[in-house]
Design a protein around this nucleic acid. Structure first.
Length: 268
DNA sequence: TAACATGTTACGGT
DNA sequence: AACCGTAACATGTT
C-alpha cells in the first residue's frame, strides 16, 4: 500500500530480474494482453511517483498498486490469484490487486521525471510554476496532485503540512511565497524521511499527525476532516498550523465537518 | 465485525 | 468538448 517511497523499495527488490527474460506469464488481468511480455527481456526497472515501470524493448508495463495492491517475490499469497505473475529463470514476481497498463515507446516520451519528488531530476521550480496556475486549490488537494508531486500520498500530505505549520484548508495562492517554497521542499524531504523510516519498519511510530488523536507539540486534540475534491482524510492541529486564505475564499464557509454522508455500496 | 484505508479511473450527465 | 460528481475496484487491519 504505496506512496512513492514504497515504490522505491519495490523497485529495489525487483532489481534481481533486470536483464532477465520472462519465461511464463499468468494472472487475472482481463483487459491486457499479458502474453505480450512472454519471451521478452526485462531491460530496466524504474519508478515514477507511484508507478512501477518494467521496461521491455518498445514498451513498458506500468504497475499501479492503487490503495490495496501488494507484491510478492518467490512467495505466493495462498488462495489468491495475482493480477500478474512473471516467471524468470531466477524467480517469480507477482502483483496483487494492481492496475496494469502498457506504456508504448520510450518512457521519456510519457513521463516527466522532474515531477517525481523522489527523482534525481525533481525540479522544485517547475512544481512552483505548476502551482501558480491553481491558486484557488486548497493545499490538501495540491499535494495529492500527481502532476505536481508525483509520489506524494495522503500520509505524506498530512505530515508535510504539519511540519511546515500550514492548515490543509489553506489555498495555494494565499500561501506566502516562502511557505510555498517550504511545502515544495518538504514534499521531497519528507518522502525521503518516510523511505528511511520504512526501511527500519519505523514509519508508523514516526507519524506526527496522520491517524493520531493529539498534537505531539501542544497536546491539543487534532482536527480531522475529509477535505478537497478527493475527500481524503486530513489531520491537523488548529493551534500549530496556520490557515492562509485570500479575501475570495474567506467569504466561503470553511468546512471542518463531513458535509454529506458518502453513499456506501450496497451489499449483494 | 463493520468500517476504514498509503488511490485512481471509468462513466454518465451537464 | 470540457468539466463535474459518483461508482467501481481490490484487501488487510482495527
Amino acid at each position: 500500500m504505496p506512496e512513492g517511497p514504497t515504490l522505491i523499495m519495490l523497485a529495489e527488490e525487483a532489481a534481481r530480474f533486470r536483464g532477465k527474460t520472462v519465461r511464463q506469464v499468468s494472472g487475472n488481468a482481463k483487459t491486457l494482453d499479458l502474453q505480450r511480455m512472454r519471451g521478452r527481456r526485462l531491460r530496466r526497472i524504474r519508478t515514477w511517483g507511484k508507478h512501477l515501470l518494467l521496461e521491455f524493448a518498445g514498451f513498458s508495463l506500468r504497475v499501479h498498486l492503487m490503495l490495496f495492491g501488494s507484491w510478492r517475490i518467490d512467495a505466493r499469497k495462498p488462495g489468491r490469484t495475482p493480477t500478474v505473475r512473471l516467471n524468470f529463470d531466477n524467480g517469480e514476481l507477482e502483483f496483487y490487486a494492481s492496475s496494469l497498463k502498457y506504456v508504448e515507446g520510450e518512457l521519456d516520451d510519457t513521463y516527466d521525471w522532474a515531477g517525481d519528488v523522489l527523482s534525481d531530476a525533481w525540479d522544485p521550480a517547475k512544481a512552483r510554476r505548476k502551482l501558480k496556475k491553481q491558486p484557488d486549490e486548497i493545499v490538501a488537494d495540491a499535494l495529492l496532485d500527481q502532476d505536481v508531486f508525483a509520489g506524494v500520498g495522503n500520509i505524506i500530505k498530512n505530515e508535510v503540512l504539519y511540519r511546515i505549520g500550514v492548515d490543509p484548508r489553506s489555498t495555494v495562492g494565499a500561501l506566502p511565497p516562502r511557505k510555498l517554497g517550504e511545502m515544495i521542499r518538504e514534499a521531497r524531504q519528507y518522502s525521503f524521511d518516510f523511505l528511511a523510516w520504512r526501511r527500519e519498519f519505523a514509519l508508523k511510530r514516526n507519524l506526527l499527525v496522520h491517524r493520531r488523536a493529539n498534537c505531539p507539540a501542544c497536546g491539543a486534540p487534532l482536527q480531522r476532516a475529509e477535505l478537497g475534491h478527493r475527500r481524503r482524510w486530513a489531520y491537523w492541529c488548529a493551534r500549530d498550523q496556520e490557515l492562509f486564505t485570500t479575501e475570495k475564499s474567506r467569504s466561503k464557509p470553511i468546512q471542518t465537518e463531513k458535509p454529506k454522508p458518502k453513499v456506501r455500496k450496497k451489499t449483494r
